[in-house]
Structures are given as C-alpha cells and as structure tokens.
Design a binder for these strands. Structure first.
Lengths: 188, 188
DNA sequence: GTTTACCTATCTATCGATAGGGAGACAATG
DNA sequence: CATTGTCTCCCTATCGATAGATAGGTAAAC
C-alpha cells in the first residue's frame, strides 16, 4: 500500500492535498477546483471526489495536514535545552523558509482572512490551527519563567502573519525580516 | 445630479463599490459576483458591467476608494498638535472600529493574502495601499525625532493586519486588543 | 466476492462578459 | 415651441466556460 518514497507523499490522496494546499495558499479556498487538482495529479475530477466527497472535506483535510506539519516543524516548545529566543527563532524560521522556498505565505493566514466565507469545517480547522500555534507560543515564552516577559503569544503570531501579507503584497521581503527582528529583539 | 443624502453615497456606481467592498472584505476577490452585487443594488448584472467593464476594473476601483477612505480617516501624520502615540492610536482606532462596526477586517489584508491570484491592476492597487500606509506610519513615527525609537512602520502594520486575521479566525477580539496594546507600549 | 481506486458521462448552477435595445435628460437647431 | 441628435444608464437575452457534484461502470487487489 504505502509506497516507499523518501518523502511522506503516499498515494493520490496525499498528492491531492499537496496540490490543493499550494493553490489555496496562493489564492484562497476558491482558487482550487477539482478539475485543476485532478489534471495536475493526473487523474479525473470524479476521482478527487472519491477521496474527498465535498470541497469542505478537502479544505479541512488540507488545513489539518498543514497544521500537523507546522507543529512538527517548530518542535517542542518546552525543551529545556533551548532558550525562549531559540524557540521563537525556530517558529520564525519555519515561516521564513516557507516564503523563500515556496514563495507562499501561511495557509491559515490566507484562509483566516476569508473566514466569513468558508464552509464551517474549514473555518473550524483554521481556528484550531491558531489555537494550537498560540498555545505552542505561550508555552515557548513561559517555559523559563522569564525575566521581564511582556511580549504575548498573540503579538508574535499577529506580527508574523501580518508580515507575510505585507511582504507578499509589496513584493518586499525586507518587511518580514524587519518584523522578525523586532520580535526577537523584544524577547530578551 | 449629485443627490443630497447625508453620506457620500452618490449614484449606483458608489453603491456598487460599497457592496463589492463588503463582499471582498468578507471573502476575497472571488467572493464577489456581478450578479450578487446587481441584486443587492437593485439593478441587473449587465448594468454593473456598464460602470465597471471588467472585474479587474471593479476590484481596482474598490481598493482605490478604500485606500482614500483609510488615509482620510487616520488624518495627518505630521500634525505637531498630537504625539506619535496619539497618531498611532488613531491608526489602531480606525481598524478597531472597522472590526467592531462592520465585523470585517482590512480589505487589503484579505486581498494581499491572495495577491498571487489577483488580476494585476488589483494587486498593484493593494501594493499601493500598503506603500501609502507604510509611508504614513513612518512619518507618524518620526515626526518628533523621537527618543529611543526602535519600532518600525513595518512592525506596526504587520502586527495590526495579523491581529485582525487572528481575531477573526479565532473569533476572539482579545487578540486584537492585546496586539494593539503591545504596539502602543513599545512606542514611548 | 468484496473493496479500492479509478474511469466515462453528464447534470445543474453560476461565472464574467457581450450585443443590442429603450427610456429619459439635455443641448442645439429650426 | 417643437424637433432632432446625443449621451447616460439601465434593460433583455444570451454566450461559452467553468464550477461542484453524482450515477454508474471497470479492472485490479485482496
């Protein structure tokens, strides 16, 4: 069943999610169509419906897969081997490399901005992503009780998400770097 | 010609922009259709095309109108009668009331997040919005040469835009307040 | 023989966009 | 005053493309 590739790509379902995520991160939920995905994956649109009956199912699956990947990438928020600053740097690095490697911003930033028009299951998955990431950041901030901790998780996540939008819209990655530096400077 | 209402709403073109903006801020560029707008305004979709031949025209017009409104709302960034903090508070207030009154986030945050899928004229209008707002904020920050100014315009705009997404997606306005407080605290 | 994973074929709804017509306002002309 | 032409702003009607979704068939795997 499971193939033996070096990545986690296993079967068409996984390929579908991969393609769908890329399109959603570029243009939002409406930017993906069953036909486009099918063509790119090499099957027919009816076969995409076999794996994900409704578009809302596909959207929720994409967000859940994305959430798991991000949480895995940022690592443990309470490992005493690294400092708060190192942990937040890791968080920033995940987004920085996503922008550099793929040229895409955070999936849940794109979808979160259009929450009001999203099918409920998708909106809930996006909300869960932010809840998880906020919790991770809170833990990362408070693990070493910290000296004069004033920065909050919401401030850090807000800054990062907004910086991606700003950099993308103005085609100026400097805004992201600038904001990232500000976050790190406010930590020690 | 010009009617005599108490607001600036003048004619169908203005009504179209109003409705289109509301839909775009809720669900992005693809969330508006000529038919929906027409129905809401009380005309036919062909008449919407009369005012805005292509959808890209409509999108660009909506963004330009929005840009002018925001810039007017935040006022002068270099009036020596108010402090830096007062100016930034005004900027925050504009977005806060937008979220409270309309339940909608910044138009250019929604569109900026899907920049890669936007018609060029719309993407350029969004980019111009951010350039203008960044310039406004830089001026607002540096007018009184400031003591230990470390906060940059990009950091403030990023935080605000991201905070709106975060608050909307999690249905928790506290995240916006939290971020807004952090911005103000970092200024003096 | 049941399940999995694809297929063909097709449905209805909606999209942006266009062609061409009509009613009213208005200015110029006689 | 009455007529004429033009311009604005809306209309009806329709086009082709694309959307999500479904019914039912097929071939291989277990």
């Amino acid at each position: 069943m499971e193939n033996t590739e070096h990545t986690a790509l296993t079967g068409k379902a996984e390929e579908i999610l991969e393609v769908a995520e890329r399109h959603m991160r570029a243009g939002g939920f409406d930017a993906v169509s069953f036909r486009d995905i099918a063509t790119e994956v090499g099957i027919k649109s009816a076969s995409v419906h076999y794996h994900f009956p409704q578009k809302a199912d596909l959207g929720a699956a994409v967000v859940q897969r994305y959430t798991a990947r991000v949480i895995a990438a940022v690592g443990a928020p309470d490992n005493s081997d690294d400092s708060t600053k190192e942990r937040i740097s890791r968080l920033i690095g995940v987004y920085r490399s996503a922008m550099i490697d793929d040229g895409l911003i955070c999936l849940c930033c794109v979808l979160g901005a259009e929450t009001l028009d999203l099918p409920d299951p998708v909106a809930e998955a996006v909300s869960s992503f932010f809840a998880l990431v906020l919790k991770w950041t809170e833990t990362a901030l408070s693990a070493p009780p910290a000296a004069g901790e004033t920065t909050t998780a919401a401030q850090i996540i807000s800054s990062l998400q907004g910086a991606m939008v700003l950099s993308l819209a103005t085609k100026n990655p400097q805004h992201f770097s600038d904001t990232a530096n500000g976050i790190l400077k406010a930590i020690d």
